[in-house]
Nucleic acid binder design. Structure first.
Lengths: 206, 206
DNA sequence: TAGATTGTTAATCGATTAACAATC
DNA sequence: TAGATTGTTAATCGATTAACAATC
């Protein structure tokens, strides 16, 4: 009997726990409990304990969890003890903002390459980088062994560009284009679409 | 016996269905099936039918769903047959991009007001609007009866600003700040955090 | 020690899937 | 009509919660 797969839904909560824990850490806190963490992230204490126990025993009865240790452990579980190089494709307003985003520090990612297909943008500077020509994207990403990309191109070309990213060796795509991507098995996609986020709330606004 | 609440998880899928259907519509398609829609959005056909049947019978045996009718119906269910006015708070790179975002057209939202607390930004033009002083935010939002906001301020002030938004009458916050917000009951929050999105994928990259 | 809190088991709850009669 | 596909029921599967012995 092989070890059961960790359910996706548990994995999806871990980064949220980690974010809260790193926040506590920045505030100088040493220790927390499933109760306290749960209140902060909006999850029951039992669920926090159950989720964490999938990966080992990180806490101590009576005292709770050492925040530093739990942060380190979660970073290992999520494979972000390393720093992943990330390519940003599409230098519109959103790509521009994402390329210059300061929030990846200490989160396991750094932007290292920017692409656009517009000759007016290629060669210009955005943040710390010169925008590269999308015509060389496959070769450039492949050579740099980049496996993570943020896709900020218009919806009508997103599917085609995602195909190129996969060809180039990318295995994880954060998709800002408001469209579902069809990708091969083993390629992960996460979607960021503000309209979807807003519509998930207006349902309840009555 | 009162009608059962629609589960959150079903509500959260509806905007994704709608996005796919609107996409089909733009391509001139008239009709689809639970099978086809399901393949496109990565959900089983049975689940699509079950989800939709929560709200009524939108399909026809043998022929499937009329896309136009289903789009209209979903827009009503999600309360986006109306257009919601949206305020954007924080004119950093992300707020800037969000304020100029073209993707809200036909999705039920329009940006109508921008705020920042930095005197260097107040009064400048971003997209179609002049950035307003955050000092007047509560009054301005209240007067305009705005109920939806996108929060693009730095994490360290996000909690305080969200409190002001609620005071001003906002009931739905799309939060781009990488931090959990504590809000009163009845206030909806959706989170957009690229680091969280990326970390949900690196777990699987091994 | 007494109090607090974990990790885990069993019970409950809820969501997904399978299957099919109804019917377009 | 024959084929296709819905809406719905029942069965299955999975996730959450409650509870508590273990123990720090």
């Amino acid at each position: 009997m092989t070890h059961a797969e960790t359910p996706d839904i548990i994995v999806s909560r871990l980064p949220v726990y980690l974010r809260a824990l790193q926040h506590m850490q920045e505030q100088g806190k040493q220790t927390t409990s499933s109760q306290e963490l749960g209140e902060w992230v909006g999850v029951s204490a039992a669920q926090i304990r159950k989720d964490l126990s999938q990966f080992g025993g990180f806490g101590k009865q009576g005292t709770g969890y050492n925040i530093g240790f739990l942060v380190t452990s979660l970073r290992e579980i999520l494979h972000i003890q390393q720093v992943w190089d990330v390519a940003v494709v599409g230098m519109g307003d959103m790509g521009h903002a994402v390329a210059r985003y300061q929030g990846f520090a200490n989160k396991g990612f750094r932007v290292v390459m920017l692409f656009d297909s517009d000759p007016k943008k290629v060669g210009t500077r955005v943040g710390d980088f010169i925008v590269r020509d999308a015509a060389n994207m496959i070769a450039d990403i492949h050579e740099a062994k980049i496996q993570v990309a943020m896709l900020c191109v218009p919806a009508n070309v997103a599917q085609a560009v995602s195909k190129q990213l996969v060809e180039a060796g990318v295995r994880a795509i954060l998709n800002y284009a408001p469209i579902n991507l069809l990708v091969p098995d083993g390629i992960r996609v996460q979607y960021i679409d503000p309209a979807v986020g807003l519509q998930r709330m207006t349902y309840y606004l009555g």
